[in-house]
Amino acid sequence: MKNFSVIELYSTLPDTDVEGNINFTNYVKRYNDSFNITQLLPTDYQEKIYGWNTHLNLSLTSVSVFFIVNPIHNFILIKHFFKEFEKLNQYGFNFEAVNVNINPTEYERIFYGEEKETVETVKLDLELTDMFVHL
């Protein structure tokens, strides 16, 4: 059993001319071909971040990136992500960083992509299933 916190980075998309099957990484690659989301993570993230994925919303106007993190590192990671995602402002993004509480239904939606959102699960520690912590 692991406790965890969820950090969400969200922004409107700078360009709404988006193909329906594109994901966040490929979207950013339109501006920076070498983009990889791990460039925005701390170098020692394996001990702090359990998993993450990205969503473009149904109307393809905004993006959310959800990180499941060790709650001990919650605040320092929010600071880190906010600063790192600011690097994407040059392409027209404007990310906000927040904690979110997720219930089991939202967990399924966010991490298993039940809605027809573009979901890009980059890494997920499967030991986390069915465990929630209220902040």
Binding site: P71, N74, I78, K79, F82, E96, A97, V98, N99, L135
Partner: peptide, 17 residues
């Protein structure tokens, strides 16, 4: 306080950065 806590929950980091 933000360094020594039981839990911390941030809703809008941009407002307190």
């Amino acid at each position: 306080k933000f360094s020594n806590h039981d839990s911390v929950h941030v809703k809008f980091f941009s407002k307190i950065k």
